[in-house]
Simulated assay, not measured.
Amino acid sequence: MTSERERSGSELLDRALVEEATKKSGLIWVRGPGTADRALWHVWHEGAAYVVGDGPGEQPLPGLSDGGTAEVTVRSKDKGGRLVVWTAAVAELAPGGEPWRAAVAELKGKRLNAPDGEAMPDRWQRECRVLRLTPTGATAPLPDGPLARPPLPSPATTREPAPAGLPRLLFKRRAR
């Protein structure tokens, strides 16, 4: 039987693992109820992961709703393997409120290749959702077997094979 002190220490270690792993990872894999895992970029701020999406040009957030839960899988930034799986309470931030502005200030610095630069927070306020994913407690055990699945449907297509002469053009040595 585990004592209260051991259980408390284990919870602290779990919380530290969740925070450090999520803070350092560029992507988290999030699964809402009845949906497939989806890779989301995020930022860790004040004890929770924040994501923005569901607007034009932003990442989709299917199955994530205010007051719901989600399963978050965090990968290693250097090796890409699963580090920890945790359950999150999902909360949608009210656009324009103080918590929303603080989260958006953090998210804005992490958003790559934004089409509208400094106008991005205004667009997010009008067209997107900002969600806070707060850890609810202990971590889940990592699965034993592989979790490979077919890719999600996408409008992206595979381009034609590279022309046979392309490698010679790319790696041609320049005459001195």
Rank of each mutant, 00 (worst) to 15 (best):
G32K: 05
E118Y: 00
V85L: 09
K24C: 08
V72C: 06
M120L: 08
A164Q: 04
K108Q: 07
L27Y: 14
K110I: 01
W41E: 11
L112M: 13
P153D: 10
L112W: 09
A105V: 02
G80V: 12
L83C: 04
K23F: 09
K110H: 10
A16Y: 05
A119H: 00
S65N: 08
K23I: 00
T158K: 10
R173E: 12
A175R: 15
R176S: 15
L131N: 05
R123P: 00
G109P: 09
P155G: 07
R101C: 06
K23S: 12
P153G: 11
G96M: 04
K79Q: 07
D78T: 15
K79R: 14
R173I: 06
V72S: 04
L12K: 14
E20W: 06
E92W: 02
G47S: 05
G32L: 03
A140G: 01
S154P: 01
E160K: 01
A156Y: 11
A140P: 00
R5I: 15
G34W: 09
K172R: 15
D122A: 14
P95R: 12
G80H: 02
A114N: 09
F171S: 08
G145E: 08
D66P: 03
L27I: 12
A103D: 02
S25F: 02
L61V: 03
V104H: 02
E58N: 08
L133P: 00
P163W: 07
L61E: 00
P151E: 11
A89F: 03
P161E: 00
T73Q: 08
D144R: 13
L40F: 02
L93K: 09
A175H: 11
K24N: 14
L170A: 09
C128A: 15
P62K: 13
P155T: 10
L169S: 11
P99T: 01
R174K: 12
E4A: 13
E127C: 10
P150N: 11
R176I: 08
P33R: 12
K77D: 08
V130M: 04
A140Q: 14
V74P: 01
A119C: 00
V52P: 01
S8T: 13
Q59F: 03
A48G: 07
P95D: 09
G57N: 03
P141V: 06
G145N: 07
W41T: 14
A39F: 05
G9V: 03
